[in-house]
Design a protein around this nucleic acid. Sequence first.
DNA 1: CTCTAATCGAGACGGTACGTCGCGTCTTACG
DNA 2: CGTAAGACGCGACGTACCGTCTCGATTAGAG
Lengths: 189, 189, 189, 189
Amino acid sequence: MKTDAPIDRRIRRTRKAIRGALQDLLHTTALEQITIREIAEKADVSYTTFFRHYPDKEAVLADLADDQVVRLLDLCLPLINLPNEDSAAACLATCRHISDDRMLWTALLTGGAAGAIRASFITRTIEKAFDMRDADDWLPIDIGTTLAVGITVDLLAWWLSRAGHKSPEQIAGMLDRLLAGIMQRKARR
Amino acid sequence: MKTDAPIDRRIRRTRKAIRGALQDLLHTTALEQITIREIAEKADVSYTTFFRHYPDKEAVLADLADDQVVRLLDLCLPLINLPNEDSAAACLATCRHISDDRMLWTALLTGGAAGAIRASFITRTIEKAFDMRDADDWLPIDIGTTLAVGITVDLLAWWLSRAGHKSPEQIAGMLDRLLAGIMQRKARR
Amino acid sequence: MKTDAPIDRRIRRTRKAIRGALQDLLHTTALEQITIREIAEKADVSYTTFFRHYPDKEAVLADLADDQVVRLLDLCLPLINLPNEDSAAACLATCRHISDDRMLWTALLTGGAAGAIRASFITRTIEKAFDMRDADDWLPIDIGTTLAVGITVDLLAWWLSRAGHKSPEQIAGMLDRLLAGIMQRKARR
Amino acid sequence: MKTDAPIDRRIRRTRKAIRGALQDLLHTTALEQITIREIAEKADVSYTTFFRHYPDKEAVLADLADDQVVRLLDLCLPLINLPNEDSAAACLATCRHISDDRMLWTALLTGGAAGAIRASFITRTIEKAFDMRDADDWLPIDIGTTLAVGITVDLLAWWLSRAGHKSPEQIAGMLDRLLAGIMQRKARR
DNA sequence: CTCTAATCGAGACGGTACGTCGCGTCTTACG
DNA sequence: CGTAAGACGCGACGTACCGTCTCGATTAGAG
């Protein structure tokens, strides 16, 4: 999705500013309520220039979301891919990562960006989890992934928006247990 | 949301036509792509008249979605509220209900209305499940509901859009097992 | 060009306002310098509404120019069509007509509208003078008309912009003599 | 208008290319429809470079038109300035000159440049004809010039665009007769 | 024949106007 | 005289072109 870093510094600077502006605005406003002019304004970039870099605001959001998701996914994947003994650790790593950049993730998961994040999450997961088995499984891989991501996103969103007092450890515990429920790891023991 | 049935038949007829029009359009188009003029056109109602009945298209969707959700919920609630032995039956009833009006639910769950449905679902569930216990539970009631609804909606959407060949019974089985995973019913046995 | 008077008063009012605004602006500015937003602004009409009535400013100008030209042409045509004895009277009638609405014609003939007027003039003249003869003439009808209109417009424009002190009678005399030169009426005597 | 030939060859080359490009484009397109980027493109010159030489496209046109006009004027002036016996010869010389570079003049007189040519023509004529008399004349010098130029330009444009089959001699004859009509030379005999 | 100063290419950027689309209000003509 | 049709204001969208700017890379012409 994201083209490899352009050479021209002005371009890098401009795009960064646009992403930053959108990220800021997402703290307070749903995506559909945000106007491209606002983004441009906040990014201190001309309205026209916006379109020189992104076809629409969704594209900015995708750009914005995608690398965060990719980064997060490295922590998440063991939840699904690896043998059970690691799942707890992976959950914890994930929750700590979220917790470390709480503001950003609150914006991404509880604001208007949630849909995009969820979509990007699912796509990327399926991409990276191509070696996952649904072999003898009662749950096909695609819906399994969708559900796992859905649960993860919903839980994290709830944590960030309505259960902020809970510790990463608590959430990680819940997440592990929930995913285990789906993955039936417990059942395999 | 929905005002109690108006007396005037013309009003009832008009609103019904509008809802019907939107429902039709939702089969093929995402909500944001649908224009009020289209709805009015299809409902054979003047553009101006639309606004005499609904403030915007979201309101129609809410109206449309809500009573479907309410109806569905009567079948669903036992999944969460009642003792375990009934859960399988409730799941099956739910899936059959969906299956009976496949077109409508495909539109509602996989079209642009999905978000509204999900929201209405969660709201209604919490409303009706106020007597649910999260007492000794590791999972607070609100997130539990959110997750259960999320899983249900995701699974049904997947069924309707990408796994149409599966029978209501199969889906019901998966749903039961998934919710059990969350509710930990199986684990309690 | 101009559709027969629309029924709705709002439409009539709006179009009139737009034409009036353009006419005003043409007093001071060339057509290309005038922006549609200015016209709308001056007409006290929303920018969008402008396009509900005219596709561009040229269309307004055409509308504006055309009926003036048609009116003027009724006075002018005898200059070309009729026997000599009437030409002086026709010239005088023309110049008096111009003089009666000096501001308007100054705008039309010396502002940015001149080209449109000239074009409309030629078109309308050829339309209405279909029975003109170039039979035994050394000068083909189309170029004859073009030149006659050109001379007339140039002379009137000069009068209005740089020789305002001259009386309609004086200008009429010059015009008669000039056209006679082209039409070779003198030569026929 | 045109600065005397610059020393640097690159500059000369670039300007020449720009003028040539505009001239080419004028064959097919009106000036307002031509974009500076097109000119630069066709001239094989960077967009930026255009502005290093001309402030806008009108300036190029002026540059382009002006020296052609100056050249033509040397042939034309006798039409107005000199005693009658030379006028026929001057007309013929003018028409032959036009005929010799038919493509160029077609572009200049019938394309979007016509207005500029006309203006430059009038200006230059008045400049060079400062010693003309309107002494006992019924027609003031400025309007006389305007009309003479108008007639000449209109006639030549008509020739080039719609009467291409006529010979320079025929057009010269018409031109002579037309100008005589205005100048009343014939009448004075 | 270099060296130095200018021209030139490339293209990001701010800005202004355009023309379109959809919403929701409010006027008008018509039954 | 009420009501359906639709004109209107509003404001965002996305496009096109203008003219400015900075940065290197040539390239001419002077020493």
